Simulated scan of single mutants.
Amino acid sequence: MSNDRAFLPCRIAVLTVSDTRTVADDRSGDTLVERLEGAGHILAARDIARDDRAAIAAQLRDWCTAQDVDVIVSTGGTGLTGRDVTVEAHRDVYEKEIDAFGTMFTIVSMKKIGTSAVQSRACAGVAMGTYLFALPGSPSACRDAWDEILLHQLDYTHKPCNFVEIMPRLDEHLRRK
């Protein structure tokens, strides 16, 4: 079956959540940037935020309102420790949660790390016409999420369906460029 769709690049912002990382040693952020650019997408923005729920949510909201950001991928802060508040910050912003993303990520992770996958709280949602994905903070987890899920779902040519084709309808009262 031939594919009659042309690839449409997404504008993706990458947020690393960490109290200790800098851009110089942000291997997870580097992994995501390498993968998204390698797939033909555009790095719209990149930043590092401390493990602070309000600060993370504020950055997510800021990027959701930006005209040049279609997708936000965060890495870090999805675990179970007291400082892990990325999931809560994401859920403060979401209008709708993409429940199956966490399930799919767990399935992918279980093939690699067995029952330790139960400790991940990877999640995804939609807010203000923007997709948001919260991934664990390891480069391996970022590779797994990108290679096994996001690469395909952020590719307009992927059939039978993908996130990109419904992007213009995520916030139907706003016109996307």
Rank of each mutant, 00 (worst) to 15 (best):
D4W: 13
R5H: 11
P9R: 10
R11V: 00
I12M: 03
V17L: 08
T20C: 07
D25E: 08
G29D: 02
D30S: 14
L32E: 00
V33T: 14
V33R: 12
R35I: 00
L36N: 07
L36Y: 03
G38Y: 06
H41R: 09
A44I: 00
A49K: 15
A49R: 15
D52K: 14
R53S: 08
R53D: 03
A54G: 12
A57R: 14
A57G: 07
T65Y: 08
T65C: 09
A66F: 07
V69T: 11
G76Y: 04
T78D: 08
G82P: 03
G82F: 04
R83F: 11
V85N: 12
V87T: 13
V87Y: 10
A89Y: 01
A89F: 04
R91V: 00
D92W: 06
D99Y: 13
M104G: 08
I107P: 00
I107E: 00
V108F: 12
S109Y: 09
S109H: 05
K112I: 10
T115F: 11
A117P: 09
V118D: 07
A124Y: 05
A124R: 11
L132K: 12
L135H: 02
S140M: 10
R143Y: 06
D144L: 04
A145P: 00
E148W: 02
E148Y: 03
L151G: 01
H152L: 10
T157N: 09
T157Q: 15
H158L: 02
K159W: 14
K159C: 11
P160M: 06
F163K: 06
V164T: 08
E165I: 01
M167T: 04
R169V: 02
L170I: 09
R176E: 03
